[in-house]
Design a protein around this nucleic acid. Sequence first.
RNA 1: GGGGUCGUAGUUCAGUUUGGUUAGAACGCCGGCCUGUCACGCCGGAGGUCGCGAGUUCGAGUCUCGUCGGCCCCGCCA
Length: 594
Amino acid sequence: MDALGTLLRTHNCNELGTDHLAEEVVLMGWVLRRRDHGGVIFIDLRDRWGITQIVFNPEINPEVHQKAHQLRSEWVLAVRGRVEARPDDMANPKLKTGAIEILVNELRILNASETPPFPLDEDVEVSDSLRLQYRYLDLRRPEMAAKIIMRHKAAQAVRAYLSDNGFLEIETPVLTRSTPEGARDYLVPSRVNTGRFYALPQSPQLFKQMLMIAGMDRYFQVVKCFRDEDLRADRQPEFTQIDMELSFVHEEEIIAITEKMIKALFAATRNIDLTPPFKRMTYDEAMRRFGTDRPDTRFGLELIDLTETLRGCGFKVFNSIIEKGGVVKAINAKGCATFSRKDLDNLTEYAGRFGARGMAWIKIKEDEWQSPITKFFSEDELTAMGKALDAQPGDLILFGADSLNIVQQVLAELRLELAGRLNLIDRETFDFLWITDFPLLEYDHEQKRHTAVHHPFTAPAEDQMELLTTEPGKVKSRAYDLVLNGNEIGGGSIRIHQRAVQEKVLRALGIDKQEAEEKFGFLLRALELGAPPHGGIAFGVDRLMMILTESESIRDVIAFPKTQKATCPLTEAPAPISRKQLTELSLRPDWKEK
RNA sequence: GGGGUCGUAGUUCAGUUUGGUUAGAACGCCGGCCUGUCACGCCGGAGGUCGCGAGUUCGAGUCUCGUCGGCCCCGCCA
């Protein structure tokens, strides 16, 4: 092993070319691959920036060549040598530095390495647990490094854009208080205050509102948020938001500013020139046409409502559902009449996952409508259906019949599944869509009360204040979501800035005056001390980066992510703690010690 | 809380359907040869708690039950 000493790196492994011929350079990095011919030895040296081929030639320098025989994967090297053009026809067009190589005359071995537990130089699929256990190796792989680098560029573009537009980056507490509503909190016991707990923030929502009341006017933060809920491919318990709040604004200003921010972010990361304004759709229209509040509008297969067409129809199953207040909707899968019985069974099973109790279908053939259910319908009913669905020979009609919620969910998922199978999605497109006019509240049948669709601080539509006490479920809010390719990547709202309005909304949520005072007293007090009109938005950085890097999982764009069981295989967190630590916190758990 | 799927050499996988001699392949690793490769090539070799634990059986990688872990999904995620 050699010391680094005072040796200085002159270039990285991605910048040398024919402009540097005959220069003496010093490179440092890791051995990616070695090709030892017995005589000449080639090493691909890798760093964060790229790969450069270094050469050991026994005729030029026998001692260094001898030393190079021992080099193995992931050894850490410093080399001094001359930049040489590669011999004719020996250039490697796959490498940016492929026109040159470094003829080494000094080799310092800075560190050896055990054989890595998985290969870093190939596209071999390695299990997630192994990758995460050795995340520092996983991140050396160029494709992973590229994702981390792109994430940095995104954060830098956002900071630059927002700073240039009058926003202040202000930190908010990580140790804060648990609030009702929303997700399960991560809790932190207080040592100094026995029996009391901090909560990690689900978002800095109330703090950014406090900053508006403090006159900061425009705030942003790239901030970690925490929600103790189960994980998914696009969901981690700790995640990062670009969090923003502005004073003296309405929806249009926030939308315009964030569109420009997203434009700057896409230019900086992917060199993609977006052209705002983005499309918009109301919540009601999205639910009606696509069955979801985050529709992927890169393809059709829209939901067609047949409830009125089929009211009183001869098919008992549909008719009784309609009579009980349910709905019948359908998707026309263009050209899918060729689906086999097996395909259809498969789709039915898929639909079952989302609560469908079955799935009726009709194949539109040239001479007949082929289906187990056509016989139940009159000629007029079939004609009316065909017209509503624009059914042409070769089409396949898939029905959802149940309560509105189930039909919407089932058909929305079926629509996505079909688009995937039929390859209808253009992967090159970035399809942005604002969803507006969300309902303020929704009824929770389990809790038997209304809950906030966005959060309890979202302002109701200005002209619907009266409805709040009479028909709270019908009130629209001033919330908006930004959807990208069917993923919710951001959401926000104009907030309530007057105490009376906030009290009214809390009451509609079933929070009485005393509880409101206990949990939100500081907010209510602040609202009566000169709170300006304000609103904001937050973007999910992880999901956005997942789309930008075309990753399958959110874990690929997080340097140190959690497994689906919310553990970290690298550090083995969460871990047991000592009895002493528990005692200091005055915690006396009743679980059994090992 | 629930459903699905996977777990075999360092890695990726075959073998499990139908239980049966010494559990295979590729890559990697180790040794030898090799002066223009770039996924270098050629020759040879080592390498296994078939996730773990019970059970059935004359006999279990293979069947049963339990358990642990990875991943995907439902619920959950204002």
